[in-house]
Amino acid sequence: MITDKDIERINELYRKSKTPEGLTPEEKEEQMCLRGEYIASIRRNLKSQLDTITIQKEDGTLVNLKERHQEKYGN
């Protein structure tokens, strides 16, 4: 899980990357890892939200998006 401290560090590394001295190889690696964790966290949150959405078809039936996805793709 990504924390506020992690986001603060991502921003700090970004600001440093824009300075003339730039990032060290270790900091570049840290930045890549933190960004990867951040993106994974965003994807998990989005999937969680989409899994709870229910849509109503024209005939009035309700379909949960998670169930619909599982029926269509078997995941």
Rank of each mutant, 00 (worst) to 15 (best):
N64M: 00
E8R: 14
I2R: 01
T3R: 01
R15V: 09
T54K: 08
R43P: 11
N64Y: 01
D59Q: 06
T52D: 10
D51E: 07
K47S: 13
Q49S: 14
E58F: 13
E67A: 02
T3I: 00
L13W: 04
H69V: 14
N45R: 15
G22N: 00
V63S: 10
R35D: 09
L65C: 04
G60Q: 04
L34D: 00
T19R: 09
L50R: 07
G60P: 01
T3C: 01
D51G: 05
T3P: 00
K18V: 15
G36P: 07
K16P: 00
I10M: 07
E71N: 08
D59M: 08
R35Q: 11
E37I: 12
I2V: 05
D4N: 11
K66R: 09
K72I: 11
K66N: 05
T3K: 02
L13D: 01
I10Q: 04
R15F: 10
D59C: 05
K72D: 10
C33H: 15
T19M: 10
N11I: 11
S41V: 11
S41I: 10
G36K: 10
R9T: 03
E8Q: 15
E8L: 13
E67Q: 08
E12I: 12
D6I: 02
I7C: 07
Y14G: 06
Q31C: 14
E27G: 00
R9L: 04
G22Q: 01
I2F: 02
I53D: 03
Y73M: 06
